[in-house]
Amino acid sequence: MRGMAAGAGEGETPEELAQLYARSAVLMDADSGRVLFGKDADTARPMASTTKIMTCILALETADLEMECSVSEEAASQPEVRLGVREGETYRLEDLLCSLMLESHNDSAVVIAENTAGSVEKFAGMMNRKAEEIGCRDTYFITPNGLDASDGTGIHSTTAADLARILKYCITQSPKRTAFLDITGKDSYTFTDLSGQRSFSLQNHNAFLTMMEGALTGKTGFTADAGYCYVGALENRGRTFIVALLACGWPGNKGYKWEDTKKLMQYGIDHYQYETVTLDRPLPALPVSGGAPPSGTLEGEALALLASEPIQKEFLLAENETVTASIDLPEKLTAPVTEGQEVGSIRYCVGDFPVAEQKVTVAAKVPERSALWCFSQVCARYFAGKNKINQ
């Protein structure tokens, strides 16, 4: 069991991660969403076909897998990489999602967007709203397939930290996370269009699935502007790590993304373990303005005793990391104060990342020092004095 103390070594680049190829990289704890390591983690860059994790999860959440999707002229005209759909054909949504995620087909992405939202533009609006809901800080979607694009608002882009947040949502928070993992984890898949006249066979191009034990899911990407990109997740002994890479080499260096991914995942496996931490901070008594002293006399200052419920939680921590606490309380309270009244909080952090919060309440009531209370105290003293004389 680990206690709480000050952290150390924040901001330092570990020796094992000093030579990453990616211009932007993140290693994230999928449970808490904490960025364990970042390199230019908040720099916005084009993200190519890693975009398709958002396309996939939105389609899963808004439409039925059996939905019939018709192909428009716009969808059929998309550039490589493509399934080869033809205008007027119809397909099952589930089949198109497998095409999207296993072989990264750009035409399938447009068919999905048009049939779930009515148009690519409306679907992009859904993508941006979902990104904001997830907590993405600097992400802007224009296309459902990740092809390089720009408009009057900006360029199609994200950050390594935001890309990791999106995958975290897909695998831990979305109500369709099981379906997402099932689709993206398939080795291969075969299907036909709804007429049965054309058949297709897909192979999963996410090579990371066979590179490390526990690999769960992921998506590759490449465009001329973005370079090679990747986002993926791995589970190891109850820990789930996410790696996101942007601008990880250009043609001639296709393997860089796999080297960086393995290096970051292994760093997480080697250095982070779940630790049980007891959250229990001693609390000061707060003065109560206009309060009756607990002694029941006219002298002395009224103080409110505070309480917080000790709890134990598990956190993913490196060997040199600890949980720190900061207490948020007013300088004083104003009477009357009731038992159980919430007066502040204790915030627990690892580095600057908040991991837990406790409420601080009043342990016992403090009545107001009213005129009636003062009169009752004077009377009590008077009669106590008379009793002594009579004795």
Rank of each mutant, 00 (worst) to 15 (best):
R2P: 00
A5G: 14
G9P: 07
E10W: 13
E12N: 11
Y21S: 09
R23H: 11
A25E: 03
V26G: 03
M28R: 01
L36E: 06
G38A: 05
D42F: 01
T50R: 04
I53D: 00
A63V: 06
E68F: 00
C69T: 10
S70Q: 10
R82E: 08
L93F: 03
E94D: 13
L96S: 01
A109I: 05
V110I: 14
V111N: 06
I112N: 05
A113D: 07
N115Y: 05
M127G: 03
E132D: 10
C136G: 03
D138E: 10
I142N: 04
G154M: 06
I155K: 08
H156G: 00
A160N: 04
D162A: 07
A164T: 07
R165T: 01
I171Y: 10
T172H: 04
S174C: 11
D182C: 11
I183S: 06
G185T: 09
F200R: 09
S201Q: 15
A207M: 11
A207Q: 14
L209E: 06
L216H: 01
L216K: 09
G218R: 03
K219A: 04
K219W: 06
T220L: 11
A224H: 12
Y228K: 02
Y228L: 00
G232A: 15
E235I: 07
R237S: 15
R239H: 12
C248M: 06
G249H: 07
P251A: 10
N253M: 14
K254V: 11
K254Q: 15
G255F: 10
D260K: 02
K262C: 11
K262H: 01
Q266D: 14
G268Y: 01
Y274N: 10
Y274F: 15
P282F: 08
L286H: 03
S289G: 02
P294W: 13
S295P: 06
G296A: 12
G296C: 12
T297Y: 12
T297L: 14
T297V: 06
G300T: 11
A304S: 11
K313Q: 14
F315N: 00
L317Q: 02
E319Q: 14
T322K: 12
T322L: 09
V323S: 01
I327W: 06
P330A: 07
T334G: 07
G340A: 12
C349H: 13
V355H: 05
Q358Y: 09
T361D: 01
W373L: 12
A380I: 00
F383I: 10
I389K: 14
N390D: 13
N390A: 14
